[in-house]
Design a protein around this nucleic acid. Structure first.
Lengths: 234, 234
DNA sequence: CGGGAGATTGAACGACCGTTTAGTGTGCTG
DNA sequence: CAGCACACTAAACGGTCGTTCAATCTCCCG
């Protein structure tokens, strides 16, 4: 067994190098030899310490998840989805882990599923609490609203490079993330639409005889069509 | 040169099989031999028709992007980010392409960058138009608001499996996407917060001398600032 | 000191991958 | 019919990868 003080050793160096490499290049595109070189060890030592490449991945997953979970529980009281962005906004600490997290959520590993579920649950709890405190407006589908908040919080993580590119290219770091805070809160406070024309239209469209539900046949238009629907039968 | 009527041939079968395989397993994890088997041809024929594996990927990228762009331009007039979801809502047609799109945006290929920029631009144009029509509330950072709308539209694509799992596991298809329409419009119309306490707090925090907790040395807060300018020289 | 346990390594193995090569069939053209 | 172009293939090549193996090195304990 390995004691907690066993860190700072070759095993820890391998883990850190693997996290960096997986975050930068992805799991498949990273070879054990590349990780070994970055950690200053041989490829065989990785296998000796972790078993095989998948076990190394699992160890990295657990480590990153633990880092986020532990440092997040102290931030649970922060306002809703900004919990995530609050954890994001000192990138110099979480930097490598954020890219790793994006990779994790991209190709869903078991650990990524656990982390995602945890994020959803924490978001749900925070929203419920705020709802009880009377801070929230009523929504027709609270669970889906929870997921929307999760998406809004996780999207910057998964689209970091694209967003950085769209914002001008070079500033894909803390400044870009900070720039997101105020518009996000504006959206959460006022929405973007001045009146409820779109919403009413969609409500009407979905409430009409249109089945909307599931099913293979039918193929109703549904969706949030504008004022006038488009009877696309496909 | 290859005429457009050259489709439906082995070349088209290879492309379709590659799109399916790339969407299901990712680019790196898909071998040419697997694509060849799925298309009923030999691996060498793929090289004969496309050059190499990266060229095949580029051809698939272009094909998928064209499918989305062409079918999307007829939907530009749809409300903001629901443009994307409107295109999503008949998954039985776009199904494979959506997963492929998610993979594309995950590992940013040149074609993915082009597509993302196109989506941002279309979203910006629609928002500008709606702003001119007086449908939108003012925001402190319109460009970032545009990106938020893009994120809200693209997040379901990139987190499809996770969201499907969180919604109960089996329903990761059209019904799940449809369920998202109304809560999304509610968010865009009313936000989720009843008052502007969080927003005011954040505005105050960012406007004050508080560097919003940066890391090492001072380093101007920069960020997107509030209504006032932010002469960011980059 | 002696010996065992774990850390660490270089080298090799086997599998798979992308690509190349040399070739076969097939249909159209002159 | 000769010949060429093209779709198509089986087999092999070279490289990389994950993993295994046999062997050191190091340190601690009796």
């Amino acid at each position: 067994m390995r004691s907690a003080s066993d860190d700072l050793t070759a095993r820890a160096r391998i883990r850190d190098a693997a996290i960096r490499a997986f975050a930068r290049d992805g799991f498949d595109a990273t070879s054990l030899r590349a990780i070994a070189a970055a950690a200053g060890v041989s490829a065989a030592l990785i296998v000796h310490h972790f078993g095989d490449k998948n076990a190394l991945r699992a160890a990295c997953d657990d480590y990153v998840v633990a880092a986020f979970i532990d440092d997040k529980h102290e931030l649970i009281e922060a306002p809703t989805t900004d919990r995530i962005r609050t954890a994001l906004h000192d990138l110099e600490r979480y930097g490598p882990y954020i890219d790793y997290l994006g990779r994790m959520l991209g190709d869903s590993s078991p650990a990524a599923d656990r982390l995602f579920d945890e994020i959803v649950q924490v978001t749900r709890e925070v929203l419920d609490e705020q709802r009880r405190a009377g801070l929230l407006v009523e929504t027709s589908d609270p669970e889906m609203t929870t997921l929307l908040m999760v998406m809004l919080g996780l999207a910057p993580v998964m689209m970091r490079t694209q967003i950085g590119r769209a914002l001008g290219g070079d500033q894909l770091s803390r400044a870009g993330m900070l720039r997101m805070t105020l518009p996000t809160l504006e959206l959460l406070t006022h929405g973007i639409y001045r009146d409820s024309a779109f919403l009413d239209g969609a409500r009407e469209a979905m409430a009409s005889g249109e089945p909307v539900s599931d099913g293979t046949a039918s193929g109703g238009t549904a969706s949030g069509g504008t004022a006038s629907d488009e009877g696309e039968t496909s």
